[in-house]
């Protein structure tokens, strides 16, 4: 009887403490920085070790045990490299032509910012959080709000203050995430927000009059001051022109978020575009 009462009192005390904690944050709209920083630095250190151990096991398996079929794969990759080299040369030619045109028109050149490769060392702490941890931090020059890219498109941005050797990245598909977007051909501009279900991205505030089409790519607009202009966000999968002022646009992300192991952190942030908001 006494034990039951003690348990009930403990439940009420813990529940009340949680509700108090939540209500404080909902009023101030901010977390508990010290608690967050402490928890993150402890678990980042543990995850670095865990990731190191699992990578050793994986590399042992893939480098020594699972080598069947590598010769055939090597042949296929060599052919792919040849084809890609051709594409690189074509792209280089286009870049040099563009630079020449920019010089002719006296435009400011869009310099490609330096990037830093980082390994993912931890995944979602809770289902639906859409936050990952990478093994680069303030010692490598990583700062909050830096853009994080994959090899085919935008992944997200650095959130919170990184520790010396780890940083948290909020994925673009998370329910609080977003990026400034622009459609490739119709040039409709609007924020692309995560957490929209299937597909997980939604482009908002696009004028009904814009001729946005299914299959068109959505690129970063550079208006958010985080992501440089021109990186691929995804492809338009659905356009619904309702009775309101704006179209409802569903965007399928270019990046396969279920398979991220290495990312690129953009070490310089782009200057906010003129007239951007």
């Amino acid at each position: 009887m006494g034990s039951t009462r003690r348990t009930l009192v403990l439940f009420l005390v813990l529940s009340f403490a949680h509700l108090l904690l939540m209500s404080v944050q909902m009023q101030t709209r901010s977390g508990l920085p010290l608690f967050q920083a402490g928890a993150f630095s402890v678990f980042a250190a543990i995850q670095r070790v865990m990731a190191g151990v699992s990578d050793v096991v994986r590399s042992g398996w893939s480098n020594y045990v699972a080598l069947r079929g590598v010769a055939a794969q090597n042949d296929a990759l060599q052919k792919q490299v040849l084809s890609l080299e051709g594409q690189v040369q074509t792209q280089a030619a286009i870049v040099s032509q563009t630079r020449a045109l920019e010089q002719l028109l006296n435009l400011q050149q869009n310099l490609v910012a330096s990037t830093l490769a980082a390994r993912v060392i931890a995944g979602d702490p809770a289902p639906g959080a859409f936050v990952i941890t990478i093994d680069r931090g303030s010692a490598d020059g990583v700062e909050p709000n830096m853009a994080v890219l994959g090899h085919v498109g935008v992944i997200g941005r650095v959130i919170n203050r990184p520790t010396a050797y780890a940083a948290q990245v909020q994925l673009l598909i998370g329910h609080n995430a977003g990026a400034g977007g622009v459609t490739e051909f119709s040039e409709a501009v609007g924020p692309v927000k995560g957490g929209a279900g299937d597909p997980p991205l939604e482009m908002a505030y696009v004028d009904l009059l814009k001729d946005v089409r299914v299959g068109e790519r959505v690129l970063t607009s550079g208006l958010d001051g985080i992501f440089p202009r021109g990186f691929v966000i995804g492809t338009i999968e659905r356009v619904v022109k309702g009775s309101g002022e704006y179209s409802e646009i569903a965007v399928r992300p270019a990046v396969d978020f279920s398979n991220i192991s290495v990312v690129l952190v953009m070490l310089a942030r782009p200057a906010r575009a003129e007239g951007g908001s």
Binding site: M50, A51, G123, S258
Partner: peptide
């Protein structure tokens, strides 16, 4: 928590959801 973070590393993005 350590196992959650370590295993979720291979399931980023919501295809495999566990807690």
């Amino acid at each position: 928590l350590t196992l959650q973070l370590a295993l979720a590393r291979y399931a980023v993005g919501g295809r495999w959801v566990f807690d």
